[in-house]
Amino acid sequence: MNQIMSDKRVIALYTLPALLLILTLIYVPIVLTGYYGLMDWDGIGGMEFIGLENYANLIGDTMFWRSAWHSLLLALFSVGSLALYLTVSLVLAGNIKGADMFRKIFLIPMLLSSVAIAQLWIRIYHPSNGVMNRFLTSIGIENPPMWLADTSLVLFAIFVPIIWQYAGFYIIIYYAALKNIPKELEEAAKIDGASPLQIAYKIKLPLISGIIKVTIVLAVIGSLKYFDLIYVMTDGGPNGASEVMASYMYKLAFRSNDFGYGSAVGFFLLVLILIVTYLIRKATASKDEVQY
């Protein structure tokens, strides 16, 4: 058994193709991004080595730290919203009639491309014609908020569609995980007289804790490098009020022709994610060992 399960050739055969692919297509760009970060380069013409200057500038760049804070807030909101998705999945995976149909309907928005989602929410948030403000004025609120123009609101206004956009992604993962729990366990608990809530809390959640941890990590990483809707809906504005790290990096690299500095931001973003991910894994590791 052990011999077969530790056959070096099989391990190599199973892992090398994928490893080769990510080493060339992901690690080479990562290394080059770090390298470009050491350059004064507009991304077009020649480059000049300037050592750690870009990274030093980064430390004192208030706009960068502001965008990093926004990204971090998004990560917190995303992780918080996982609880909601989990609840929905628990209900859908339970033995209720029509669960299958509800599940399919719930996941439909996930199929929409970011282009469509952005257009939809721009129309929801439109200051005068928007769904939101039409509703607010109809119930007698005279000066409804200018969702995407108000520097104190815009960040939270943009979080809502982002979190909604990913609902399907997490629900489908939780759903598959919950369906993976052997029915016998649940039935045994029922016979013991456990309520659905108890079954969910005491049996199901512990059993899928592995996948919950995975989704926490995914939500954090995904949030810290998030770009799409912010770019289309607010372009980081007004004046950086909804800027996140990835959109800031993009602007530096592709609009301000400061590819060197943009790369430094990109590389720093990666290091930051690495640290945060390490911390999360560390915080959840002890339970990991007990679980399996």
Binding site: H126, P127, S128, M146, L148, A149, D150, P238
Partner: peptide, 8 residues
């Protein structure tokens, strides 16, 4: 126009 900073 109101909300101009958020309008394209």
């Amino acid at each position: 126009i109101s909300g101009f900073n958020g309008l394209s």
